[in-house]
Each structure stands twice: as C-alpha cells, then as structure tokens.
C-alpha cells in the first residue's frame, strides 16, 4: 500500500466514522480543535484505525502524542512500515 493510499484510507474512514467534513481533512487540522473530537473519541479512533489497517495499536506506540491529522498519517505509515520490516 502506497503512502498516498494509506492517507486516503485514513481520511475516508475518519470522515465516515466520525461524520467529518471532507474540506476539513488537511494534514494541519488539529484533531481536538479543528476536527472537534475529544478524549472520549480517541479509543473509537484507535478501533477505527485498527479495523481499517488490521493491526493492533499499543499504548507504547505513542498514540497519545498525536495532535493533528498529519500526525495520524505519519503514525499509521510508520506503524505499517515497522510491521512490514518485522514480517521480512
């Protein structure tokens, strides 16, 4: 899966699952202020990403440090890369 495809899948999943507006989905968008999610939503977001990408996210992966949509993109791309390496 290319990075672009990953980003598209992240955005479309979040738009659908959190009923977000497509125009707001810029990498700079902050998940709390711009996208309007709150701390209660974070677990839901983890489950959405886990289901979309078929991996498990652990606390130590640094999910708590995520602030922007771009952070989510980088997080998932990094996670996929490290899983692929392990798979080699």
């Amino acid at each position: 899966m290319t990075d672009q495809k990953i980003i598209e899948l992240i955005n479309s999943s979040l738009i659908e699952e959190f009923e977000l507006e497509t125009e707001k989905m810029t990498p700079e968008a902050t998940i709390y202020e711009d996208l309007g999610l709150d701390s209660l939503d974070i677990v839901d977001m983890v489950v959405v990403l886990e289901n979309a990408f078929r991996f498990k996210i652990r606390e130590e992966d640094g999910i708590r440090d995520i602030r922007t949509l771009g952070d989510i993109h980088r997080f998932v791309i990094g996670k996929k890369q490290s899983l692929e390496k392990k798979g080699d």
Binding site: E16, E17, F18, E19, D41, V43, D44, M45, V47, V48, N51
Partner: peptide, 11 residues
C-alpha cells in the same frame, strides 16, 4: 451516536 462508537459497540 456516531458510527465510530456504534460500530465499536457492535463489534
């Protein structure tokens, strides 16, 4: 309830 939460509970 948003789909993310609904789907999580459904699963």
């Amino acid at each position: 309830l948003r789909p993310a939460y609904r789907n999580r509970l459904m699963g």
